[in-house]
Design a protein around this nucleic acid. Structure first.
Lengths: 203, 203
DNA sequence: CGGAGTGCCTTA
DNA sequence: TAAGGCACTCCG
């Protein structure tokens, strides 16, 4: 005699949604709605940003003056390499925007000028400006152990529904392709810089 | 400035349920379900039946033969008057039915005849027979310090949902009213008995 | 108090 | 009438 097992839950990659989304179907087992199906959609979970909690200016009764509290990692835990940190806590979407007010400065307190990004790096997403992309990109280079390539969705898709089309592992920049020409030009720049350094050391 | 205190727990007599039932409302204070309410219903707790644990016939390795173990009270505790016993342990509903198999007997071992109850005492509850009422009533007279009046719910209510409508302090009999006539008749019976006793003593 | 699982109202 | 969505119960 053959016996069959009714599958009650199945979770599969969903082709009618952007890459990374999964569709789960759950069959109701009992009650008057038995046999009906509930559907859940799951997006990719974001990596946790262990070392990216911004400093907070706060006043505590134990201090004589307001102080700036800096937490780099959980209290009481050994600090590990960020690239190998546990990735269980999800990260907020567009968390980069929390960093928008922060500016690098000299030890004298004088703020640095805005950094100009190469034209090949273009922002993507609602109100994502050049400095936000920079924060996003710098963080990705710091945290990711895989290649940093930017968002793969088209700008149209992304603007239509960023929440669905975002790839949370990648920075908020459009997909970047590095050509053979790019590599050659960069090599030229490095060679020129080395030459200048040699000349400076001679004199 | 005024300060208000949100009531988080309140426990009140519940009018939409039979007498004696209480309804407790507990407001959730935090989390995603903050503000939602959990409700508990409490029935009257039953008095504990300190001296009514039936004897058990059992075999233990320390005895040469099976023995009948009799526990009248908790081991290691002083035995108090049952009417003043601590009432913290709840009693099982319809516990009287556990006594149904027990019969009084003469010292010779011969069982006594069933006792016939007066017609004014009528049983109430599922499968509660005349002997069960007797056990129940005798226990109430033994334990209760307040008047023994029987169940106050109607027979219809009681049969519909005994668990909710039972008054656990009272025996499983319908409400009994003692009339002036009843008292007079009982006085007559006592007088006749006394007369017979006097006559017997004379001869 | 959260989450799984189901009831049931709304909508087209 | 069915599907979707929300509310609610129950249990750990």
């Amino acid at each position: 005699m053959m016996s069959s097992v009714t599958i009650e839950r199945k979770r599969v990659e969903c082709n009618s949604l952007p890459k990374g989304w999964q569709r789960e179907e759950i069959i109701r087992k009992s009650g008057i709605s038995a046999g009906k199906m509930d559907v859940c959609y799951y997006s990719r979970t974001m990596r946790s940003d262990v070392s990216l909690v911004p400093p907070i200016r706060q006043t505590a009764s134990i201090f004589k003056q307001p102080v700036t509290v800096i937490r780099n990692h959980e209290v009481g835990k050994v600090k590990h390499d960020a690239k190998h940190a546990a990735q269980d806590k999800p990260k907020q979407m567009f968390w980069e925007k929390r960093l928008e007010r922060l500016r690098a400065c000299h030890s004298s307190g004088e703020e640095l000028e805005d950094i100009i990004l190469p034209r090949s790096i273009r922002s993507i997403g609602p109100n994502v400006n050049e400095q936000t992309v920079l924060h996003s990109l710098a963080t990705a280079l710091h945290i990711l152990s895989s290649p940093v390539t930017g968002q793969t969705s088209s700008k149209t898709e992304f603007n239509k529904n960023a929440t669905a089309f975002i790839n949370p592992d990648q920075p908020l920049m459009q997909s970047v392709l590095v050509s053979e020409d790019d590599i050659r030009r960069q090599e030229d720049r490095v060679n020129i810089a080395r030459k200048k350094l040699q000349d400076a050391l001679k004199s």
